[in-house]
Design a protein around this nucleic acid. Structure first.
Length: 569
RNA sequence: CGGGAUGUAGCUCAGUUUGGUAGAGCGUUCGGUUCGGGACCGAAAGGCCGCAGGUUCAAAUCCUGUCAUCCCGACCA
């Protein structure tokens, strides 16, 4: 297509709203425009990239025997009541009513829809297994949409659901998807890493997240420097080190600590190390108020805490609640003589000797506190955040930290939804059983943004060939020079004939403008036709990723471009 | 949802402290000169100063409310 006839509204300056590279560049290069917070319109170039990513996904899903379908965005509340998630999901679920006052939601995911479908259509083990997917818009009323395409309220997602007779079948489906995902992200030219993850509110057991490594990523992953262990920090669990050989348990004593309510202040005031302090955090769940204890030098891992408490909601308690249960201002709560709430402690805390804790009294702490003797722990469970530098749970290596963008996640769901929605089948033995399910998502728009995060420089985007909106831009230097124009058009047509996706920059702009735009948009290859083409039969071929230029004769252009784009051919 | 900030031309921003009726650069249109890395000269179009109230002879500017957007945190298949 001719650039003069295309809608590619590039911007010289970065819109003030954008913060990270992908957001800035996708806006500047004319791929997306914001419609509302967290809601974007994909312009023609953006749509082309999306289609490329979606087609790669389709090919890899289909290769594993999956079948594409299309499910509704608008979903009736009754299905969500059946699964129980109408209440569980909370305000993130976009809800609305139709004219008859019936409740609906905009689907954030499609377990309910597909499980309801499958329960009606699949009756026998003979119809299993099935891999069904679709690509469509999803809605989540994020508290805080941000970073452009990274965290939107409306986003495009591929979600696939597997249906098997048993766990063994599920393992196979899961393995297929693991492979498919690896292929998808490889083909998209991304540097990524599958990591173990927490299964979160969706339920289920085994799960991996596919993380694109990028500093702007919102997720923190820990990986081992000597084995292949890698996991989301939320999931990482290392055994508590052995107890200090610390000796005798001393007598508990109350000390004044005026104004010291953070671990740092207390440790400074009393001259003790943070790891000798027990940090007491009061949490509120939908059922109860609990005290969570971790060592003073550790942070709480709320995902672990949430899982350990078996609740639907978990929030740090407000100051009022803290004062009610502890009888002291925030900062002086401690497990000793705490009002009758449950106490959950990290294993590290359980083995502490002569620790320091809040005394549930303003400006007061206890020293020489010993768990078991001075207070009772109801639950001992790993609830702390593991940090870089700690020992790998699988080997003797050390953990390192990296930031990642979660572009895909695969789950073994088991029978949670099939039981809730009564999706059963008759097995060979004549018994009715719930279908064993898995679900597998890829954020399509997020994959596009992640690619830009990983592939850009100060001049703009550097698309991998596989997902570039076009392969080549042909640029005649002077649109007044008829010979240049003729040569450019000729090369452009030849490229199209070879199946190479080319555009012709026929705009009456100065060369600098065209070059800047081409770099910004990120065409992998640029062919420049200038005086040399007319006088010496030579054109210039520029590779965006390396900024290298080669001069070749007009006859060699097509071949050279093909080699640059598809080196294996 | 807590904390912070910002809404003035298509984009980036000045003007708000000290009220006096709207500005710059870029972009757009027209004419001309240019033409290998975001040219230059000249002319022009384009704004209910987020919205609604209030104070005032007079409000982009002061006050109140409201909406939107962004950042940090919390949260998040």
């Amino acid at each position: 297509m001719k650039v003069s006839e295309m809608l590619i509204p590039t911007l010289r300056e970065t819109p003030a709203e954008a913060e990270i590279a992908s957001h800035k560049l996708l806006l500047r290069a004319g791929f997306i425009r914001k419609t509302a917070a967290g809601i974007y319109t994909y312009l023609p170039l953006g749509m082309r990239v999306l289609k490329k990513i979606m087609n790669i996904i389709r090919e890899e899903m289909d290769r594993q025997g999956a079948q594409e379908m299309l499910m509704p965005i608008m979903q009736p509340a009754e299905l969500w009541h059946e699964s129980g998630r109408w209440h569980v999901y909370g305000p993130e679920l976009m809800r609305f009513k139709d004219r008859h006052n019936r409740d609906f939601c905009l689907g954030p995911t499609h377990e309910e829809i597909i499980t309801a479908l499958v329960r009606n259509e699949i009756k026998s083990y003979k119809q299993l297994p099935q891999l069904l997917y679709h690509i469509g818009n999803k809605y989540r009323d994020e508290r805080r949409p941000r970073f452009g395409l990274m965290r939107g309220r409306e986003f495009i997602m591929k979600d696939l659901y597997s249906f098997d007779r048993d766990e063994e079948g599920l393992d196979k489906s899961y393995q297929k998807m693991y492979e498919a995902y690896t292929n998808v992200f490889k083909r998209c030219g991304l540097t990524f890493r599958p990591v173990e993850a927490d299964s979160g509110a969706i339920g289920g057991s085994t799960t991996h997240e596919f993380m694109v490594l990028a500093d702007s990523g919102e997720a923190t992953i820990l990986f081992c420097d000597s084995c292949n262990y890698a996991a989301n920090v939320e999931k990482v669990s290392v055994p508590a080190a052995g107890a200090d050989p610390a000796g005798e348990k001393l007598e508990i004593k109350e000390v004044k600590t005026p104004g010291a309510h953070t671990v740092e202040q207390v440790s400074e005031f009393l001259g003790v190390e943070p790891h000798q302090i027990i940090k007491t955090l009061i949490y509120k769940t939908d059922k109860e108020v609990v005290a969570a204890l971790v060592r003073g030098d550790r942070e709480i891992n709320e995902v672990k805490l949430y899982n350990a408490l078996d609740c639907l909601r978990l929030d740090l308690a407000d100051a009022k609640t803290v004062e009610e249960v502890s009888g002291a201002p925030v900062g002086f709560a401690g497990p000793v003589n705490l009002k009758d709430i449950r106490i959950i402690a990290d294993p590290e805390v359980a083995q502490m000797v002569n620790a320091v804790t809040g005394a549930n009294k303003a400006d007061t702490h206890y020293i020489n506190v010993n768990p078991g003797r001075d207070f009772k722990i109801n639950i001992v469970e790993d609830i702390r955040m593991v940090t870089a530098g700690e020992k790998c749970p699988n080997c003797e290596g050390r953990l390192k930290e990296a930031k990642g963008i979660e572009v895909g996640q695969i789950f073994k769901l088991g029978t949670k939804y099939s039981k809730a929605l009564k999706a059963t089948f008759l097995d060979e033995d004549g018994k009715e059983k719930p279908i064993v399910m898995g679900c597998y998502g890829i954020g399509v728009g997020r994959t596009m943004a992640a690619s830009v995060e990983q592939n850009h420089d100060e001049d703009g985007i550097i698309w991998p060939v596989s997902i570039a909106p076009y392969h080549v831009i042909v640029v005649p230097i002077s649109t007044k020079d008829e010979q240049q124009v003729r040569i450019a058009e000729d090369i452009y047509k030849q490229l199209l004939d070879k199946g190479i996706e080319a555009v012709l920059d026929d705009r009456k702009e100065r060369p600098g403008v065209k070059f800047k735009d081409a770099d910004l948009i990120g065409y992998p290859v640029r062919v420049v036709i200038g005086k040399n083409a007319v006088e010496n039969n030579t054109v210039e071929i520029y590779k965006r990723s390396t900024k290298e230029t080669v001069n070749v004769s007009i006859e060699e252009v097509i071949n050279t471009v093909q080699q640059l784009l598809f080196p294996q051919v």
